[in-house]
Design a protein around this nucleic acid. Structure first.
Lengths: 100, 100
DNA sequence: TATATTTGACCTAATTAAGTCAAGTCAATA
DNA sequence: TATTGACTTGACTTAATTAGGTCAAATATA
């Protein structure tokens, strides 16, 4: 599940048109179309609006938003999964030693 | 292990000074210092040079390089690990269905 | 045909990349 | 203790990329 898929799902479940949601987010509908297809990524602040409109946990949307950014980095990488594993290791390391 | 740590390790194992390695990479030594401390990230092309100088597998350096980029995204995120998991799911999904 | 969505081309503003350089720190040493 | 050599840091720069869109035309879809 990508963020775009999630947004479309939420929108359709609420029988909302792209035009309507776009206007609530104050963006053009062409742009929303691209967001739902993960061709563009929206501003993080928009997530709050979405979570309110659709009564959906913000944390969930944020995890998808971050994941999309990560995916953008690794999607064409052969070693993508391996890199993910290394990154996880780095997170856990810094959690343990609180180096930040 | 981060890319910076790896580079420093390789450099020291080969008893090379920052100044020397920096000159091989054709960058300033201040810059290399930052790279070894993961304050800056070097150009991907430099990885090839490093792999030749230190006879180290390029793939390994690349995985670290990508991981560092990912880590930069999630390091301050509460939901970092969760997002990583979601990204992995997205990779596996697209591998399976070859949507790219 | 009308309505909804997608696409491509385009744009500007903001951010990140990819550094430099000089001053400062830190440890060993003459 | 003053000096030296290795490294670090902060402030700065410029070039490239990405963010965050718009709009009109093309395409579904009912």
């Amino acid at each position: 599940m990508t963020l775009g898929q999630k947004i479309r799902e939420l929108r359709e479940r609420n029988q909302m048109l792209q035009r309507e949601l776009a206007s609530k987010l104050e963006v053009g509908d062409g742009y929303l179309s691209k967001i739902e297809r993960d061709q563009k990524i929206l501003k993080r602040e928009h997530l709050k609006t979405l979570s309110i409109i659709f009564k959906c946990p913000l944390k969930e949307l944020e995890a998808l938003w971050i994941a999309t950014k990560i995916y953008d980095i690794v999607k064409y990488e052969e070693t993508g999964l391996e890199a993910l594993r290394v990154a996880e290791e780095q997170i856990n390391y810094n959690k343990t030693y609180a180096k930040i």
